[in-house]
């Protein structure tokens, strides 16, 4: 009973939010031809990565004649996502594409959706029981770390000291990037010395302080791999302070406006970019297959591109720069 009330209230809230969102283009609805109704529940709203997933899903929805809408919580947390997902379930769409919070937290709500006869597709992240979803579309972060390692090794010519600037230990995505990077360096590039990983605490200032200290102890550092945008922004400052821009190669992960500017300015040599646009598109395609009763792929891995000053003009690469709007 309590749950229904909560869901109802959340539903009202979502309607209100959707109504408000019409002014700024949020809560956009693709025109459908009376086909399926599919809603995408983002990991968090206003994040360029999830916005890009939404853009991909929306484009596919338009092509496939699906009625599309999206929602998201204000924080990247189960507390924020649960009421949103419950409200969407209350609307009884045909399918829900969702980037669920990892682990057990979202399982009850996701099970609720399944028992309500709603098809599920996971994108970017998965809950502890992946079998709830017809498909799971994501890029493998260990693979992303490996990709970053290959690009970094090429930049430094296969030898020298390399530092990994981590976020906060315990975050699975960034931990996986660190793991992939370090493993690849150790197994495939014996002339590269990987220093002890330093963690920024997920703040640019923390990244600056850590990298500065490492540079004091290791003036001969060849490259830094910064695992997310916070660490890249902090690393740029540390390299500028040390007059090491360009001599120490800086490789990042994911994009943001300030980071694209930094690539143009030459303070970042390149960033590994996921393909959220593709993730959204493929998730929508799998969803329609599932609704049509066709066979789906249980897991799809999307790959990466490397954004550098040289590829800044290349449409094949730049289309993947994360977007603030479609």
């Amino acid at each position: 009973m309590k749950k229904i009330v909560t869901a109802g209230m959340a539903g009202a809230l979502v309607l209100f939010l959707a109504a408000c969102g019409d002014d700024d283009g949020g809560g956009a609805t693709a025109e459908g031809d009376g086909g399926y109704e599919v809603v995408y529940v983002q990991g968090v709203t206003g994040n360029p990565f999830f916005t890009s997933v939404t853009c991909g899903a929306e484009a596919a929805a338009t092509d496939l004649g699906v009625d599309f809408d999206y929602q998201g919580g204000k924080d990247y947390s189960a507390e924020a996502q649960t009421p949103i997902l419950q409200a969407v379930i209350a609307q009884q769409p045909d399918g829900i594409i969702v980037s669920p919070m990892a682990g057990e937290a979202m399982m009850p709500t996701l099970t609720e959706a399944q028992s309500a006869g709603i098809e599920l597709v996971f994108v970017d992240t998965t809950a502890s029981d992946q079998s709830l979803a017809a498909s799971f579309v994501a890029s493998d972060n260990v693979e992303g770390g490996r990709f970053a390692a290959e690009q970094t090794a090429e930049l430094v010519g296969g030898s020298g000291k390399v530092l990994v600037l981590g976020a906060t230990p315990g975050i699975s995505t960034t931990d996986a990037r660190v793991e992939g990077f370090v493993e690849t360096m150790e197994s495939e590039y014996p002339d590269i010395e990987v220093l002890e990983t330093q963690y920024s605490g997920s703040t640019p200032a923390g990244a600056t302080d850590k990298l500065s200290a490492v540079l004091s102890a290791n003036p001969d550092l060849a490259a830094v791999f910064a695992v997310s945008t916070q660490e890249v922004e902090g690393a740029i400052v540390a390299l500028e302070q040390a007059d090491a821009v360009g001599t120490v190669q800086l490789v990042g992960f994911d994009t943001s406006d300030p980071i694209v500017e930094a690539i143009e300015a030459g303070s970042v040599q390149g960033v590994v970019v996921q393909k959220p646009l593709d993730m959204g598109r493929q998730a929508m395609e799998q969803m329609v297959k599932a609704l049509d009763g066709e066979a789906t792929e249980a897991q799809i891995e999307t790959d990466y591109v490397f954004l550098t000053a040289a590829t800044l003009e290349d449409e094949d690469v730049t289309q993947y720069i994360y977007r603030n709007e479609c």
């Binding site: 997920s202 703040t203 200032a205 916070q230």
Partner: peptide
């Protein structure tokens, strides 16, 4: 000062 330093608004970096 933070803007001058990071050339970015570092929105997520000041929780603590």
């Amino acid at each position: 000062l933070s803007l001058a330093r990071f050339a970015s608004t570092t929105i997520a970096g000041h929780g603590t």
